[in-house]
Amino acid sequence: MTATTSITTGRPADDLPPRRTAGRGIDWGQPFVYLVALVVAAVAIGPVLYVFLGGFRTTADLNADPAGLPDPWTLANWANVLGSERFWGNVLASVILAVGTTAGVVIVGIMAAFVIARYDFRGRQGLYTLFTAGLMFPLTVAALPLTLLLRTLGLHGSYLGVIIPSIAFALPTTIIILVPFLRAIPDELEEAASIDGTSRIGFFWRILLPLSMPGLVTVGVLAFVGSWNGYLLPLLVISTGTLPQELWPLPLGVTQFSTQYSQDTAAVLAYTSLAMIPALAFFLVAERRIVGGLQGAVKG
């Protein structure tokens, strides 16, 4: 790589690296690194910016000069999308699915993880292995029979038909994250609570639950993001059902909109950029949690 050679020559071996660079302010000695950083950031953000800016242009303008900037800026596309019931219906559907899935995963997951982590009984090990083995069964493999199963249960085409399987498929990860978390809470706490006359369930409610909040938040964020971005399950369960497209979740709604209005590029760009906003906003709020979760995942 050219990168490495220029760095090597830029910092000869006899030039010792400073012990602590943090306090030294700007390190202008490495413009190349800044160039790389700039290019990477531009490539990452460029297409997103293009979509956002395109939403402020007219389709005629876009057709005349696809790479230009908005001139003049028009708010019509955004206003149309924001004024449409369809967009808000899509958002509402996504919110229902994500909140339902997250709540389900957190509640069902912590209950099971509590037992696996802190009860002593025969089959505990087997139970844990069973749930972890679930990682080997991706949704893709189960998707077709799942759709048929939901039909039999009368859940096909409904939000519950997406929420319930989403909870089930999020359980392995959830339990794998929560069990070590719950186990790390010292036994002495439980003994003290028991001496004070608290039942085990009382211990769970009053002590364990508050202490395991960080783990629950991590699990919840993962479930929320997974559900919000999910496409395959809604495609199979909802788009083939009877719900009107005004009540489809965003990923389905956006693809549907872009197919229907493929001639009106500006409208599609506006719809797409508005569909991006919730995920971006959520990421800004939960950034620490998401990236922190990643870092936790690779600490070995």
């Binding site: 990477v40 950031a41 990452a44 953000i45 297409p47 997103v48 993001v225 919000w228 971005n229 496409y231 965003l250 990923p251 956006v254 693809t255 797409t272 569909a275 991006m276 995920a279 971006l280 990421f283 950034e287 998401i290 990236v291």
Partner: peptide, 12 residues
Amino acid sequence: LIFVPYVLAEVI
């Protein structure tokens, strides 16, 4: 900024 593409839904 680097993380933005990863956060978006694959579909979008």
